[in-house]
Amino acid sequence: MRVPILKQGKYLIASIQSALSDYELLQLRDDLAAQVGKYRTRGVIVDVTVLDVMDSFAVRTLRAIAQIARMRGAETIIVGIQPEVAFAMVQLGLTLGQVETALDLEEGLALLDDRTRQDGNRDAER
């Protein structure tokens, strides 16, 4: 199944609906890459709440998504990593590196607002 990508203002929200095969993950990466360019997106949120596994391939792909987005001027935030998944990830040795995380979609959106405002109005604030 293709992951639906929602456009909300300057942000793209990809909310994963079920377990994904490697192919579907790569498809998500490519879909996001295409849309970030097309819509001049400032931020990308990938909602992984339903995933009960984050293995090395998933992490590698999420990192790639963040990298591609950054090259096109967009921040990426991964939201919804569950306690058990976080636990297994660190035991495996996986981290998201520079990629930001937030508890859920709501927190992720707030964080994005924060980040993009900082970028945009850095002078105005201080």
């Binding site: 976080a86 990830m89 660190v90 995380t101 508890l103 992720g108 964080l111």
Partner: peptide
């Protein structure tokens, strides 16, 4: 360190 990393993954 693992606890810190895992918490970070959850956004804390």
């Amino acid at each position: 360190v693992q606890t810190v990393d895992a918490s970070r993954l959850m956004g804390a």
